[in-house]
Design a protein around this nucleic acid. Structure first.
Lengths: 334, 334
DNA sequence: CTGTTAGCGCATTCAA
DNA sequence: TTGAATGCGCTAACAG
């Protein structure tokens, strides 16, 4: 291992100058700088992160905690976070909790002191616990917002109101008057908001009915399982809690002779890359997930660098777009 | 931050005893042990990783370097690695190189000294560079094997021979005599082996022809783009370099009235979770990807803990299974 | 502009 | 079985 001492010896300066050359180049003279940098280069010197962390009390590492890295939603988000971290000179540790709150809690406890901050995506932890965490360490929530005393906790959320409205407006505009919303896990924070947003969007449109189903497992198999039940609502168009459920519905229907969008139109949520994998490609509403990851990282770095950023801390709500593809059409058409 | 000093003070022992209690519990007396552990618990003490790393010269961190975390193949692999790392007490840093060799090289350089070892999955680096890296730091390759002087570099690979044979045997058994193989990127190590394995598998079966196409972009759009060309080969069954290409073929064909498996049977490679998202579900051949991640982590930890494990270092070839689903049938049937 | 020095938190050696 | 002392590599005062 090459250390500051090696570089110092090689370039004929003290270790302090080596360190200074690297951290505050403007504070050393032109020719020492080139000499030191040359030595750094020749020796392949890399500052030891552990030593630096120990000294500075900051690690340069951010932890991103997700329920399931296999889920395309979090995979894309992770990608965004990754890229942003690289750009901002931070390292990123990704932790997959396999949807388990106990593992999430344990990981948070372990990571809290070993990183500069946490990003908790779609956390399974209760509000009170999140408030504690936010109180003790820089942290950004994704798809979650705290209220009360902890309301200032930075968070990135999706404007579910706008999302639901976009989906419903689109279907209403096509002529649909009876919709079904296939809800996700009942305890999910996003589900609660999506469900409410769907109901709200419906109320503002005359003659529109929205039937809600709840508690669908948010996977394609979950969608398959409720395919028949959804059809039985008599809806001419269906909005699903997420793309995977929508794909399950689509697969099951296709296999049983139900045509999309001929017999029923279908809209997914999140607009993940799987929408393009199927026939017909799935209309879906969602944000750019990489942007979601980006935003979370930026907010976190702000929180780390300037904890005195002033009150708000920064809660960002991202407005989604509706990507219209081939799974939606006017009722009875297609 | 709670340090050994706090714990020592609280339990009335020296910091050395605290450290010992945690690392070598058998070397302290029963009652000091309980006293110290109680203090640890009450104070919520967590050893500082940076300090420990600095002292011990090892970080307890493994880096997993993948080309694209959004790719379901690597997402699943990552999940496996993650779980195994947790179980073995290591931390895992996941790095996405966005398919760029230069970023991969840079990340390797940066991570080499800050982690205990590297897992390079489907590396884009040339053999010589990989050999250098393997020489300088504990490392495990996935989907890559080195030859010559560096042949002992630990690696986990898929038995492509067996995979191709399974796919071809299946189709041959159904009665297909003219197959097409849609190859992936020409410079890919896996592509070269898959292509050769397909040709080899074909030779051993009388009356079987395999037409090979090459250079397909390994995404569903890539598959869509060559759908027509593949059909023009006159093959009654098609094997694709990966599942995404297969899904692209399927989508494009479905949209143009070509029936799978009625007009053409389709087999994917890798057996990722997307195979279940479409209609018909895709027959695919591949290994359990989580196991792939598991295996890589285990091999790496072996390499770290016992660098004198004796010659081989351990190169593991995993035998894939063929998952028969609905996208394959006898020619003219379905 | 540069060098000397202290100490971050911990594991470990050496004495006791 | 325990404690005192050392130093891992680095950065940030401070002194020159």
């Amino acid at each position: 291992m090459v250390t500051v001492h090696d570089v110092a010896a090689r370039s004929g300066v003290s270790i302090a100058t080596v360190s200074r050359t690297l951290r505050e180049p403007h504070r050393v003279s032109e020719d020492t700088r080139v000499r030191v940098l040359a030595a750094v280069d020749e020796l392949g010197y890399r500052p030891n992160r552990a030593a630096r962390s120990l000294r500075q009390g900051r690690t340069g590492i951010i932890a991103l905690i997700v329920p399931d890295i296999e889920n395309p939603y979090f995979a894309s988000m992770t990608k965004g976070a990754q890229v942003m971290c690289r750009a901002r000179g931070y390292g990123l540790v990704v932790v997959d909790t396999t949807e388990r709150a106990d593992i999430e809690d344990e990981e948070v406890r372990a990571l809290r002191s070993q990183t500069d901050g946490l990003i908790l995506a779609s956390s399974r932890l209760p509000d009170e616990r999140l408030a504690e965490i936010a109180d003790a360490t820089p942290c950004v929530l994704v798809n979650r917002r705290l209220t009360g005393a902890a309301a200032a906790t930075p968070s990135v959320t999706i404007d579910e109101e706008a999302a639901a409205r976009a989906a419903v407006d689109h279907l209403y505009g096509l002529g649909h008057r009876r919709l079904a919303y296939v809800g996700g896990p009942e305890r999910s924070w996003s589900q609660a908001r999506r469900s409410a947003a769907m109901a709200g969007a419906a109320r503002s449109l005359p003659g529109l009915e929205v039937v809600q189903l709840a508690g669908c497992v948010p996977t394609s198999d979950g969608g398959r399982a409720v395919a028949r039940e959804v059809l039985a609502t008599g809806a001419t168009a269906v909005v699903a809690y997420n793309d995977l459920i929508a794909l399950g519905l689509l697969a099951q229907w296709t296999e049983t002779g139900v045509r999309v969008p001929g017999d029923v139109s279908l809209v997914g949520f999140d607009d993940t890359y799987v929408t393009g994998l199927v026939t017909p490609p799935l209309t879906s509403v969602g944000v750019d997930l990489r942007e979601l990851g980006d935003a979370a990282v930026e907010l976190l770095i702000d929180a780390i660098d300037g904890p005195a950023a002033g009150g708000e801390g920064g809660t960002r709500s991202i407005v989604p777009r509706l990507a219209v593809r081939a799974s939606t059409a006017a009722p009875g058409v297609g």
